[in-house]
Design a protein around this nucleic acid. Structure first.
Lengths: 136, 136
DNA sequence: CTGCTTGCAAAGGCTTTGCAGAACA
DNA sequence: TGTTCTGCAAAGCCTTTGCAAGCAG
């Protein structure tokens, strides 16, 4: 698996104003080394692959911190759990309802022709397109 | 509030192959008389507005049944609860992250120019566009 | 009568929180 | 040394489930 160096991760964290602790580095290493979509549970499992060393509470605290600081993005597609996406810039997703797999729509493959005006007194904070699929 | 008649609701239910019990009629009356987006909790409150007569379990059972039968649609925008939408045909949503308000994008106001091919071996089951907004 | 439906209470799963101990500057 | 972070356990919230009582045909 392609990974970023320890230094690259630390820079990434400090660029987002996040103090580099061991646990945060470990979590960022797994989630942010490449474009990925993971649930807290998957992340917990992978981070602690060899031996447990990051607790569930820390996983959640850290993910919320990362979201807060704009390092990762929350994707809401499944009522039972949140996915975290290491790709922050605008892009869209396929969601396989049967497998729970979340994958990226290739950049530029989706664009709008008409786009509606926002409701009065609001500003946009993001657009998400979820293309739900199931095995044929 | 504009409502459908008892008979219209019963027809609607039977058209979807749902046996018309008192509780189901009451729930459908609230949710389906006009285009609405409601959480289970909102629905529970409104159905039992005068005096409690539909239990929480029945609300959930009934909503799942309605979704199953295609009478209403689930909207996943908030990790903490599911919204149920009485408008079934394809349309999209504004979601105000601050107020939790979910509103419809007017029909025809949004269209795609480019649309990506689906992943191998899958068929589409739906497309949802969520435009997240916050008060300006 | 027979099968489906309801509703209570309990369980379940994901996430958050409180608080004491650990880590770091 | 003082502040921040971690981690355990417990709590919280939404939703589902088990099961006995109720209703409808």
């Amino acid at each position: 698996m392609e990974t970023k160096t320890h230094n690259e991760i630390c820079e990434l964290l400090s660029r987002h104003d996040i103090g580099p602790t061991q646990q945060r580095i470990k979590i960022a290493q797994v989630l942010c080394s490449q474009p990925r979509h993971m649930s807290a549970e998957q992340l917990l499992e992978e981070v602690n692959h060899e031996r447990a060393c990051v607790s569930k509470a820390t996983i959640y605290n850290t993910l919320n911190l990362f979201v807060d600081k704009g390092l990762v993005r929350e994707i809401i597609v499944d009522p039972s759990k949140i996915f975290y996406d290491s790709t922050v810039h605008a892009h869209h997703h396929f969601f396989n309802e049967q497998t729970g797999q979340l994958t990226d729509v290739p950049e530029g493959a989706l664009s709008f022709k008409d786009f509606p005006p926002l409701p009065e007194g609001t500003q946009m904070s993001g657009v998400e397109v979820i293309i739900r699929v199931r095995s044929a």
